Computed example of a mutant assay.
Amino acid sequence: MRFGIRLAATATALAGLLACGGDASNVAPIAWQKVSGPGPGGALLGLGAPGSFDERGNFTVTAVEDGGVTRLYYGGSDSTGDPSCPGIRDSHWRIGLAQSSDGVSFTRVPGAETGGAILDVGAPGAFDSWLAYRPFVLKDGATYRMWYNGSTKPFHCPTGTLADDRRVGYAESTDGVHWTKHYDGAGPGGSVLPLGAPGEFDAQQVGYVWVIRDGDQYKMYYSANDALNSWRVGLAVSSDARTWTKVRGNGANGAVLDLGGPGSLDAACAYQPSVVKERQGLYRMWYRGCEAPSPFGGPSGGTIGYAESSDGITWVKVPQPGAGGAALGAGAAGQFDSGGLTTPSVSQGTTWTMYYAGFDTSGQFLAGLARGTEGSGR
């Protein structure tokens, strides 16, 4: 019954978008099929070698098609940290690169930073001194641009204590492998985005960005949370990809994508956007949704939700064929993504492709792949 109510509400909202000049109501749905990789439980990559920056996990991915090669930029977890906080909870995260000619079998590209990373954590006192992860890479002419998450705190150590100071960092490269950070943004410590005012949806943290070039403008879809640790999506725009102006949305306290209602797939989180402008008047967004918060606050579990927009600002969530209206859900028992999904990275070529990170029920994070085909229009 709840799903039927959501479908009716969605049809009404899409009709409103069409009346405003968009064509989102005629979009063909995409059916996603997971592709089993050569790694553990169907993942694309296994763990890194002992001593490497990613020996405990690979996570928070973005894929870039570059000259017939798929470059997978990802966060990796090392073996440092407090033994009382197992797994990834107290380790450092850095950014690495793997590449593939077929999009399935990947080979790591050794970087010059700690443990083979291509981007290291910052110096003591920098906003990214403990964590540098969740890279988003845009090849923009001859320049590779990277935005990433930085933090001075571990993920979840001591147990019950969450990192609460994520910021957006920026780096540039001429080859996509060797990077130079720029600490000259308008945010804290030279990060990219200022925080929102008290009470705004982005008052506490910003991160997990996706950037598209839309005509002469860059659009940054960024994740943010408030004092209650509720993650939503915001929007900022720029003419030079360096200086950003926030665009206030219609969601709670300025967000462009808000939480869902009770019982929905995104009642507790709606963030980590991946946005494709398919054509004029049609923007598609895939994002991570959480049904309920974790016992200590913040996100828990995760499936991939879907939304559409005619202008890139006002978004309508569209239920998909998966359980609870998800575009892509958790894997079966024994699969690397049986615990949940995060950070979709969607692109449109000869077929639709979604790279994503998943985790199993023990909390092991690895990267995976799904491919999509369009059905008939609604």
Rank of each mutant, 00 (worst) to 15 (best):
G334V: 09
A28F: 07
R71E: 06
A15N: 13
W147G: 03
Y221M: 00
D337P: 15
D23A: 13
A227I: 04
W244A: 04
A15I: 14
V177L: 15
V346C: 01
G176C: 14
G349D: 05
G187N: 05
S91N: 13
R167G: 06
F336W: 12
D82R: 09
T70W: 15
D360M: 06
A197C: 03
W179F: 12
G251T: 02
S91W: 05
R108F: 14
L341R: 10
C290S: 03
W286R: 01
D23V: 12
G51E: 10
P299D: 07
P83A: 04
D184T: 14
C20S: 15
D82H: 08
M146F: 03
T350G: 15
A241M: 11
S347C: 08
A370Q: 03
G325Q: 01
A227Q: 09
T351G: 13
Q348K: 11
V275I: 13
C269N: 03
N149L: 07
R167H: 10
D175T: 13
A171R: 04
G16N: 11
Y271P: 15
T303S: 02
G301L: 11
N250Y: 08
L282M: 05
A326E: 01
A43N: 10
T60C: 15
G372Y: 02
T152P: 14
A270I: 01
Q33K: 13
V177Q: 14
G67H: 07
L7G: 08
A98N: 07
L162N: 13
Q335M: 08
L282W: 02
V346W: 01
S345D: 01
G41W: 03
T373R: 13
A117T: 12
G122D: 05
A126F: 08
R279Q: 08
P29V: 05
G302F: 02
V316F: 11
Y73I: 04
W32V: 06
A142Y: 02
W231V: 00
R378E: 06
R232V: 07
G261N: 09
R242L: 11
L17V: 07
K139Q: 04
G67I: 05
A186D: 13
L131S: 03
L265I: 15
K277Q: 07
D140V: 09
G305D: 00
W352C: 01
R71G: 06
V209L: 07
P50I: 09
R232L: 12
W210L: 01
G363F: 05
V168S: 12
F136P: 02
R213F: 01
Y133N: 07
Y222C: 02
L47N: 09
N225Q: 02
P29M: 06
R167Y: 05
G305Q: 01
V233S: 10
P299K: 07
T245E: 14
